[in-house]
Simulated scan of single mutants.
Amino acid sequence: MTEVPHAQEKEAGGGFFDRTYAPASEKGLRFRLYRLLFHHEAQDERNFDLALIVVIFASVIVVMLDSEPSIKARWHDQLYVAEWIITILFTVEYAVRLWVVRRPLRYANSFLGVVDLLAILPTFLSLLFPASASLAVIRILRMLRIFRILKLVKYADDAGLLVQALLRSRRKILIFVTALLTISVIFGSLMYVVEGAEHGFDSIGTGMYWAVVTMATVGYGDISPGTGLGRFLTSTLIIIGYSIIVVPTGIYTAELARTMRPKRRVVRCGECGLIDHESDAWHCRRCGRSLPDPTE
């Protein structure tokens, strides 16, 4: 059997951090750049990735410093130039990544490909919308590459379990959020009627804002009831808030436990009738009789 060269390996799927892409060329500069950008085994490849992470971190610091008024007043021009230099470097890197892979659209549509694109868009958009320059901090997401560089992909699998549990509980959480909005509308409307504009409740929307803050037990204190009935409604809403604040946590925890539970094999034992078995079981755990072959 002929051994398949590493450069001709079939493109593999996988998670956000362990996906691989076939090179567009198997030799020359294009292949060397492909190895540099998408592999992490050789010392120069790892050094490039670590240098890239340093630049990403520095770019986020530049954006943060430019948002500080005292620093911006003195160093804005220098920070502006640094931001554009970093953006141009990221743009060239993104273009080279598209150039060296066999299927550029596959990389562009991947999670890290989208993050790479979003890392450079805010600076270019700032030419039309200056305020969008601050959105460049989104490039901090590029730090996720450290999972692959430091071989921490197994932790990404654990994160996938958390996301899966969240997706499985989305309907229950949606019902819970709908119930919260209903309570907020009811109590916000009641406070608007009971307290009125003289106590700060000048609209139902303001009353809903107060209800959300009160039910979350945050209590900013910018709006507070001034009548006895209003205080009674506030006390009732606080009790409701304490009663339901643990509901989403319970929902998520239950789904997480269900997601982490080992898969079971559902097949009826011909001897004792037990239908729940381990996924790799060949014999009934109660009576020991052989179970039907799952491949049949």
Rank of each mutant, 00 (worst) to 15 (best):
M64L: 15
M64R: 04
M64G: 05
L65F: 13
D66I: 05
E68H: 01
P69K: 05
P69M: 02
A73H: 09
W75V: 09
W75C: 11
D77P: 01
D77I: 07
Q78P: 03
Y80S: 01
A82H: 00
A82M: 12
E83I: 11
I85L: 14
I86W: 01
T87N: 13
I88G: 12
I88T: 11
I88L: 14
L89F: 06
F90P: 10
F90Y: 13
T91N: 10
V92S: 10
E93V: 15
E93S: 12
E93Q: 12
Y94S: 06
R97H: 02
V100W: 09
V100G: 06
V101A: 10
V101L: 12
R103T: 15
A108D: 00
N109P: 00
N109K: 07
N109D: 06
S110L: 06
S110M: 01
F111P: 06
F111Y: 10
L112N: 07
V114N: 07
V115D: 06
V115Y: 07
D116A: 15
L117G: 09
L117W: 07
L117E: 03
L118Q: 00
I120L: 03
L121M: 08
L121I: 12
L121W: 04
L121R: 02
P122I: 01
P122L: 03
F124Q: 02
F124C: 00
S126P: 02
L128H: 08
L128D: 04
F129M: 09
F129R: 04
P130Y: 00
P130L: 01
A131L: 08
A131S: 13
A131W: 07
A133N: 11
S134E: 06
L135R: 04
R139I: 02
I140E: 02
I140K: 05
L141M: 08
M143A: 13
L144S: 07
R145F: 04
I146P: 05
I146T: 13
F147Y: 11
F147M: 13
R148Y: 12
I149G: 03
I149Y: 07
I149W: 11
L150K: 13
L150P: 10
K151Q: 10
L152M: 13
V153T: 14
K154A: 14
Y155P: 08
D157C: 08
D157N: 13
G160L: 09
L162E: 03
V163Y: 11
V163H: 09
Q164N: 08
Q164M: 10
L166W: 07
L166R: 04
R168C: 07
R168W: 08
R168N: 15
S169T: 04
R170D: 14
R171A: 15
K172E: 15
I173Q: 09
I175R: 14
